[in-house]
């Protein structure tokens, strides 16, 4: 069965088309004011990549914080349910899913059947979400995509004292003034964020395998910090930011439960 998953996130809309558990196409658009037209844009891109027309799609499920804004869907699942479905399908041994989006981070614990048994979501705090690395990259005057590779070249742990994103930004500025090397500051930023995420993940109990998804999973500097904190290897799928949409599509097909 060909199905579609639409993930309406805080910053981006992601669409995945799948058949029998295989990803056929994906599309993305920035969440703007006109959600319907943004969804269509992402959907068209996914259909084009899959080489399909809309009528071939048998079922559509929505997920994400803005899932209620999606019209013409068969059902919807929360981010927690969709994330777990997607991650467990990609890596069947997954017991802990960590998803870090633009404005929210969450940790999900699943049992051996892939069923959600517990979850934690970071509370009202930008220091544990993608927006944090963006703000810090701005303060460092480094493109976001370079922040990760830059921090990997650091071999020095500089503690970040600020516990909050607002203070962290001015702390980065004062570290720059103190002539701390940019690469060391970049690592400090990732270490601080990783510590936040680890703290949250420990609430549900971190059991291997851990699968990291969401846009921040594409940042190798953060991944390095997180592996160090959790003291284990972390599984990262290709296209980690599409896993929620993929999960919704799998749920629509009845492949995941």
């Amino acid at each position: 069965m060909i199905t579609t998953g639409i993930d309406v996130g805080a910053k981006n809309i992601k669409v995945v088309i799948q058949e029998d558990g295989k990803l056929l196409g994906k599309g993305q658009a920035t969440s703007g004011l006109d959600t319907a037209s943004d969804i269509k844009q992402a959907m068209d891109a996914a259909l084009a990549e899959a080489g399909l027309t809309r009528d071939k799609v048998e079922k559509t499920y929505a997920t994400g914080a803005g899932r209620k804004e999606v019209k013409e869907v068969d059902d919807s699942y929360t981010e927690v349910g969709a994330d777990a479905a997607g991650a467990v399908h990609l890596f069947p041994g997954t017991r802990t899913v960590i998803d870090i989006g633009a404005e929210e981070g969450r940790a999900i614990k699943v049992d051996e059947n892939g069923k959600v048994v517990d979850f934690a979501i970071n509370e009202r705090c930008a220091a544990g979400a993608g927006a944090f690395t963006e703000a810090m990259a701005r303060a460092l005057e480094v493109p976001l995509t370079e922040l990760g590779p830059l921090s990997l070249t650091s071999s020095k742990a500089v503690p970040m004292n600020a516990q909050c994103a607002v203070f962290a930004e001015s702390e980065v500025v004062s570290l720059i003034h103190q002539k701390t090397e940019k690469r060391d500051i970049a690592r400090a930023v990732h270490d601080a964020m990783s510590s936040r995420i680890t703290s949250m993940a420990r609430r549900v109990g971190v059991e291997p395998s851990v699968c990291l998804i969401g846009g921040v999973a594409k940042n190798p500097g953060f991944v390095d910090s997180l592996q160090r904190d959790l003291e284990m290897e972390i599984l990262i799928p290709d296209d980690p930011d599409f896993v929620g949409a993929f999960g919704a599509a799998l749920l629509a097909a009845g492949i995941a439960k």
């Binding site: 680890t198 949250m200 609430r203 109990g205 904190d229």
Partner: peptide, 13 residues
């Protein structure tokens, strides 16, 4: 006085 990530399961922030 070091940042840590182990108490969150035990004490509400």
């Amino acid at each position: 006085h070091e940042s840590q990530d182990v108490t969150e399961p035990h004490i509400f922030a």
